[in-house]
Each structure stands twice: as structure tokens, then as C-alpha cells.
């Protein structure tokens, strides 16, 4: 019971379908997950695997509309975002859940000063006065390690570098002290040295504030070491999820294994051929029957092409769960043989 109270986010069998002129596209197809306060979940997958749509569905940004169908439950702090009225949902955004976007160039309003970006949210949700909002905003900027926060308050976004802008975006998201932060590829638009700083900042802020965080990324390196658990998505489904170290050391799903193998390692000899995954993700208008990875899987047999594998616990004997959706999971023993 105590554990249930701790749950910040619970997602049960969420399916998001977009009606397009060429037919329905099931971008997210039956994903479940849960997140406790202070826990960090990484969602990885290649482009088009549904990870961003999942993030937006969880927030309630993608919701039922004439062209979109969402089924399943997304409970944030016990309330299902998809059954709330729009203005109730707005109450949730900010104090309960906040989002950091991919591109800091477009996520700040070019004609608004940095300060107003942050103070507006504070004044709207917390109803604090002008002076106090200003002080709190300065404090937030300091927390995201922006030098000279008082001076930055009166600057415009174009006067800041990309990394600084992303810090401002993070400060905005943190303004109302959310219980859940969703970071949708927060570092994709930044250069490599800044990427690490931003990721470390997010990780330390999450720990400090005991905030649940979802880090969506296609960069496995970004997720490794900074998340407690990781979910690997492929074609709208979770194919594997467990503690981050388990997934990285012992992937059970051939897709996760192939994805990990395709990361270039700095310790590799020069000119090592990169192990790319053959083929491309399936067309979501007409996904293959059975396991969706089967057409690209080197271990696929007839059963894989006919019968869709369920997500099941493959941990065998150990305490923590290791869910995988594969008929023939790569257990450590088999990996050694193969």
C-alpha cells in the first residue's frame, strides 16, 4: 500500500492511434510502465519507434480528438490525464508534470525576456507576487547553474547560447516543482560537450528534488548510467525493460542486443566495422504480423512471424524483474554459445 502511494506515474496498456489519410497509424501499441518518486526511466529506441508520442500521450498533450484515439490509462498521481477536462488537465501541467523539449531554439519565445518565461508560470500556478516570482526565478536559474542569474533575467533568448537556453527551459519546467519531468530528447540539438552537462544537471536535479524523470532519447550513451531503469521501444511496443545495468549488460531481446552492439566503443580498434542493424523499422500503416522485429532479426523462425510475443519476466531467479517480448530470449547462456 505504501508503495502504491509512492507511484507518480502509472501507465496501463496505452495505445495511441492517429488516423491519417492513408489509414490508421498505431504509434504506441500497448505500453505499460510505472514510475516512483525520485526514479529515472530511460526510453530508448530509433526514430519512429513511438517514444516521443508515448511521452506526449503520458502528458496528455496527445489526447482523444477526431484524428487521434488513445486507449488505456495514464495515471499521474492517481488521476487519468485522458479523462480529465481540458482545464483540469491544465492544472496538472506545471505542478504535477512538466516537459523539457528537444530544441531550445524554438522552445523559448524570441520576444519574451528570459525572466518572464519563468515568472509567468510561477505567478499563474502559485499566485505569488511580482517580486517573489522574480526572486524565485533567479533562484531557479542559479539551480540550473546559469552564471549571473540576475542579469540573465532581463536578456532575450537569442542572447544566450544553446546550452544556456536549454538550462532556461529546464528552469521553466522546474518552476512549479513538478513531481514528474519528461525530457524529450533534451540534448539532441546541443553539441556534445554541452550534452553531458545538461544530462548531468537533469540527473542531479532529479535526485535533489526527489522527482520522477522520464528521459527519452535515441542516444544509448545518454541513458546509460543516468537512469535507474530503461525501456527499449520498437515499432510502438516495449520490447525490453529492466534495471539499466541489466539491460546494458544482459540484453534479452535481439533488438536491444543489436542496438547496443551498434554503439561505437572508444576502446575499439580504429576502423572497426560498425555493427548496424540491417533493414529499417516497419511501416506503421501496415506492421508485420507476429514479432515486429522478426523481419530484421537474425534469430527469427516461423513462430516469430506468426505469433506476437508477450512481454514476460525473463529474470529467472533474481530479485528484480527483467521483462522482454521475445519467444527466444537471449539468455546469458545462449549468448555465450552463440
Amino acid at each position: 500500500m505504501n508503495q502504491d502511494n509512492d507511484l507518480v506515474l502509472e501507465v496501463r496498456d496505452v495505445r495511441t492511434t492517429f488516423l491519417t489519410p492513408r489509414g490508421p497509424v498505431r504509434a504506441v501499441d500497448g505500453v505499460s510502465m510505472s514510475l516512483r518518486a525520485g526514479e529515472t526511466l530511460g526510453i530508448v529506441g530509433e526514430s519512429g519507434s513511438g517514444k516521443s508520442v508515448l511521452g506526449r500521450t503520458v502528458m496528455g498533450l496527445v489526447s482523444n480528438s477526431p484524428t487521434t484515439t488513445v486507449t488505456g490509462e495514464c495515471l499521474i498521481d492517481g488521476r487519468d490525464v485522458h479523462t480529465l477536462k481540458p482545464n483540469q488537465r491544465r492544472q496538472l501541467w506545471g505542478p504535477e508534470v512538466a516537459m523539457v523539449f528537444q530544441d531550445p531554439m524554438t522552445s523559448l519565445n524570441p520576444v519574451k525576456r528570459v525572466g518572464r518565461h519563468i515568472t509567468e508560470a510561477l505567478r499563474l500556478h502559485l499566485g505569488v507576487g511580482k517580486k517573489e516570482a522574480h526572486d524565485r526565478a533567479v533562484e531557479l536559474l542559479r539551480q540550473v547553474s546559469i552564471p549571473e542569474p540576475v542579469r540573465r533575467m532581463t536578456q532575450y533568448p537569442h542572447e544566450l547560447s544553446g546550452g544556456m537556453r536549454q538550462r532556461v527551459v529546464i528552469a521553466m519546467a522546474l518552476a512549479c516543482d513538478p513531481k514528474l519531468l519528461i525530457a524529450d530528447e533534451p540534448t539532441t540539438a546541443l553539441d556534445v560537450t554541452v550534452q553531458k552537462q545538461i544530462l548531468d544537471l537533469l540527473a542531479s536535479l532529479a535526485t535533489e528534488r526527489n522527482m520522477a524523470t522520464i528521459l527519452i532519447s535515441h542516444d544509448l550513451g545518454a541513458v546509460e548510467g543516468r537512469t535507474d531503469r530503461v525501456a527499449v521501444m520498437y515499432a510502438g511496443r516495449t520490447v525490453e525493460t529492466s534495471r539499466t545495468s541489466r539491460v546494458f549488460n544482459n540484453p534479452v531481446h535481439p533488438y536491444a542486443d543489436a542496438l547496443l552492439a551498434s554503439i561505437p566503443r572508444i576502446a575499439d580498434d580504429p576502423h572497426t566495422v560498425l555493427r548496424a542493424i540491417d533493414g529499417s523499422p516497419p511501416n506503421m500503416l501496415n506492421p508485420p504480423d507476429g514479432c515486429r522485429f522478426a523481419p530484421r532479426c537474425r534469430f527469427a523462425v516461423d513462430r516469430c512471424r506468426e505469433e506476437s510475443p508477450e512481454l514476460r519476466d525473463l529474470a529467472d531467479g533474481t530479485d528484480d524483474t527483467h521483462l522482454g517480448a521475445c519467444h527466444f530470449p537471449l539468455l546469458p547462456a545462449r549468448q555465450e554459445v552463440g
Binding site: 502528458m59 498533450l61 491544465r90 501541467w93 506545471g94 516537459m99 522552445s107 509567468e120 499563474l124 527551459v169
Partner: peptide, 8 residues
């Protein structure tokens, strides 16, 4: 979208 997410 960021503004909407902040409750505007």
C-alpha cells in the same frame, strides 16, 4: 506548447 504546458 511550452506555454500551454505551463498552464496558459
Amino acid at each position: 506548447m511550452a506555454a500551454r504546458l505551463m498552464g496558459a
